[in-house]
Design a protein around this nucleic acid. Sequence first.
DNA 1: CGGTGGAGTTCAGTCATTGAACCATATAGT
DNA 2: ACTATATGGTTCAATGACTGAACTCCACCG
Lengths: 184, 184
Amino acid sequence: MALGRGYADQDCSLARALEVVGERWTLLVLRDCFYGVRRFGDFHTHLGIPRAVLADRLKALTAVGVVERRPHTTGVEVDYVLTERGLELWPIVFSLAQWGERWLAPEGSRRLFSHAACGTDIGSSGACPACGTVPAPADLLIRQGPGADATLRDDRVSAALRSGPHRLLTDLFPSPAHTATSDA
Amino acid sequence: MALGRGYADQDCSLARALEVVGERWTLLVLRDCFYGVRRFGDFHTHLGIPRAVLADRLKALTAVGVVERRPHTTGVEVDYVLTERGLELWPIVFSLAQWGERWLAPEGSRRLFSHAACGTDIGSSGACPACGTVPAPADLLIRQGPGADATLRDDRVSAALRSGPHRLLTDLFPSPAHTATSDA
DNA sequence: CGGTGGAGTTCAGTCATTGAACCATATAGT
DNA sequence: ACTATATGGTTCAATGACTGAACTCCACCG
């Protein structure tokens, strides 16, 4: 985590994990990855993170293989998407969000997750009460909860998330025939 | 998290949670709390954290009600123990550690957790394969794994954790008739 | 050929962390 | 009573990280 001297002398997997995801904005960037954010500019405006820090975090996450940088074949656009390693961070992101909902959201839940296959809201453990399984993030739908505050942010990512349920990991802004390379 | 300006304008429970546990050493302090560390000096020597930062983190965690400061009736000793709120952080600590074990521990697991009631090692989801339940931290035993590196740290906390299985949350250094207040 | 949008980099100012030294209180020893 | 030690901090200068604004670079657009 480049924490001063790092946690290198810790002999603890938690410390090692924190070196990767423990820096200041990193987990919020990863949360956005799960939500379907893929573009530098979207991370930037959605999070309000300084560009330099965002560039640094994306570089670090790419270096450790948590996200993958996927340049478009044409244009300057770049996609950042989670790798297998990154996808397995979901329990961390989810459990942090759940704890926050439970203890720091007196207004009610801000976001709700449901199992796409059966439509059931998942429990705080991450398991689907109907199926008894723990759905992978790709099988979850996210939607606004009663505690969401629409006045806080006004960017296209917030708008997209507000506009209705969205399946995790799918691109929030798919480009139908955008700059046209694999154009039908 | 006092991250520059904090994550106050995020409308996200994950961001709120990170303001509480996202600062640099905080999750390692909490990990030690789960392991049974309770004293200022033990956190200090076990983690190698600067005293000023440790004092600050403990103050912050106490302020948000994640740990509780419990002065002894006599003496200068102080215990820091997890509250209910703090105990519910276990999934976060555990999932981070599991991810670290999975992806950042080529030498093998450093620490293993087993369900005290049945002796079965718990899975990466935190569930006990034998019982099918997800044991609370108080029902878990921690012990060294094959990937543990005894050369890294040499303090009494590390020694106590090396010496054999230990039940989470129980005091690593119980004082039998220490300074004698409730002395039999 | 100028303008625009995406994706960064650079840089001065500010804030947090570090490590060492210092302080306060309580008990233990003599 | 006086000193020594342990515990749990606080203070402070130096270092490093973060912030915000400005700037760059490149591909396309018209």
